[in-house]
Design a protein around this nucleic acid. Structure first.
Length: 265
DNA sequence: AGTGTATCCTGCAGGC
DNA sequence: TGCCTGCAGGATACAC
């Protein structure tokens, strides 16, 4: 997503801002419009699941897709998506639209210091080479949470959702309910490798479209066909043939192969 | 302090 | 056909 935004957004001036769903915008309504209107986009980057757009003003535009958010970029007149929450008309006849059926996502303008405070709460990036198996082990050792819950907590490790947590744990042969602190060094190393492989596969495949995900051109991602555990309850494990099971904890579904991912080692 | 649960919201699939 | 229930990619406020 961000890789696709980087060559397109910088340089654009935000000409007009329309907030159609006030609960998605922070600050809601007119204040967000005032903050952004007239600003020129300078750079785009990602941290955890946040898309961060920096401008020539002392503010950062943070876009978070939540569960069903879509960020769409187009030139000329294209039909407005059905659940448009915020639209930014850019110069050069371009438009950036944030659309979100469930409205769990956010489009937020914040100051650098506000963002610094938020960022200080976030765990390390799994794809950052500075996260070593030893560092990950140290962090895991401090928690008795089920490893799946730990992986979903952005304060522990950034940017891992239920799909990639599920896929990585399956690939690493680790039961999602194992306490984080119970993983030994080889398991942690394998988990980190598996996380990175699952994330890279997802990114290289253009993202995982289960229903709503779209890239900035409105196209679906192809990663759903690569999933080996997530959403496959009752289907044969692609490694051993055992039916994949689903269980629920932490308010979310977890999928696992009971044979490849034993409850205890 | 650390951990688990309820909640925000809409749409869709499946059971009856 | 239509109504009901459960579930969905995330994060956070709150209870214990």
């Amino acid at each position: 997503m961000v890789d696709a935004l980087v060559p397109r957004l910088p340089g654009h001036r935000i000409v007009r801002v329309r907030v159609r769903r006030a609960d998605v915008a922070v600050p809601s309504g007119a204040a967000l419009v005032r903050a952004l209107q007239g600003a020129r986009i300078q750079s785009v980057r990602r941290r955890a699941k946040n898309i961060l757009i920096e401008t020539d003003r002392p503010l950062i535009l943070r876009v978070h897709l939540g569960m069903t958010g879509q960020l769409l970029y187009f030139r000329g007149q294209a039909g407005r998506p059905g659940h448009t929450a915020v639209s930014l008309v850019l110069d050069g006849d371009a438009t950036l639209v944030y659309s979100d059926v469930r409205r769990f996502g956010r489009v937020e303008a914040l100051s650098s210091s506000e963002w610094r405070d938020r960022e200080s709460e976030l765990g390390p990036e799994p794809l950052d080479p500075s996260l070593t198996p030893d560092l990950l082990s140290d962090r895991l050792a401090r928690s008795e949470s089920p490893i799946r819950s730990w992986l979903l907590d952005p304060r522990q490790i950034a940017g891992i959702g239920n799909i990639y947590a599920t896929e990585a744990l399956h690939a690493a042969g680790i039961h999602p309910r194992r306490p984080a602190s119970s993983l030994d060094a080889p398991e942690v190393a394998l988990l980190l490798t598996s996380l990175r492989a699952s994330l890279r596969l997802g990114i290289d495949s253009g993202g995982t479209t289960l229903r709503d995900y779209r890239n900035i051109d409105g196209q679906q991602g192809e990663n759903a066909k690569n999933l080996r555990a997530y959403g496959r309850e009752g289907s044969a494990c692609k490694r051993c043939g055992t039916p994949i099971e689903r269980l629920t904890f932490g308010g979310r579904s977890a999928f696992l192969c009971p044979s490849c991912q034993p409850v205890q080692r």
